[in-house]
């Protein structure tokens, strides 16, 4: 029960178990991701050239929007049944506990997007050379989106209706991820070295990992006051 990471595994295991008890909710972001990318060819044109050009932006935009989708419940359900109070008062470091919750959320809502991305990429005629960049970019970008989203969710949890406010709070902060992520895939499609944007995504992820848990914990405390 000691050490700075105490409680991390317990909370992670509980949140994952809870996610599997609500499979519909868990599948929601993934389904949304697939649907958005699937309707683009219908609306634009089935022209491979055109689809290949818009694919990086479409895939990243869809990933960003789907990661926003499941955020609202991240803290709201724990807030509503009193579990959040118990976590705050459990005597563990709160930033560590919210990091565990965010990781569980990412594993359920972000990781599946990374895994199905090549499938959707091929549907948009993205050349296989760019799939690696797409997956790596999503692997570095979606955790940051989850962390940013968790901060927005923590801030809006105490308010009655948070969803619209939550998107407004998170989207502007998330645009750099969208820009660098799509740019990396773009470069890979053109046969250039995508390492620059990927490094930037990694840098943003580590910045977010080191600072945001503190901000999320503070926001949770405020929403309970």
């Amino acid at each position: 029960m000691n050490g700075p990471l105490s409680g991390f595994g317990v909370v992670l295991a509980r949140d994952l178990r809870l996610a599997f008890r609500r499979p519909g909710e868990m599948a929601n972001p993934l389904l949304f991701f697939i649907l958005i990318t699937a309707i683009f060819p219908l609306g634009l044109s089935p022209e491979p050239e055109l689809l290949r050009t818009v694919a990086p932006g479409v895939l990243w935009g869809a990933a960003l929007l789907s990661s926003l989708l499941a955020l609202d419940l991240l803290f709201r359900s724990d807030y509503g049944d009193g579990s959040l109070e118990q976590l705050v008062l459990s005597g563990h470091s709160l930033p560590v506990l919210v990091l565990a919750k965010t990781l569980a959320h990412w594993m359920v809502s972000g990781l599946p997007l990374v895994l199905v991305a090549p499938l959707l990429a091929s549907a948009l005629y993205l050349p296989p050379e760019a799939w690696g960049t797409l997956m790596l970019g999503l692997l570095l970008g979606t955790p940051t989106l989850s962390l940013l989203g968790a901060m927005g969710a923590a801030l809006t949890t105490g308010l009655g209706t948070g969803s619209a406010l939550l998107s407004l709070l998170v989207l502007p902060l998330a645009t750099p991820i969208l820009i660098f992520g799509a740019r990396g895939v773009d470069l890979a499609v053109q046969g250039m070295d995508p390492v620059g944007p990927l490094y930037l995504l990694a840098a943003i992820l580590f910045l977010a990992l080191s600072l945001l848990p503190l901000a999320i914990a503070a926001a949770v405390r405020i929403s309970l006051d």
Partner: peptide, 20 residues
Amino acid sequence: EDFQHAFAWLGHLHGFKAEL
């Protein structure tokens, strides 16, 4: 943290998950 380990809180809300 020492204080939080030393007390247990029961509020209006139950503090557990309905799904479990």
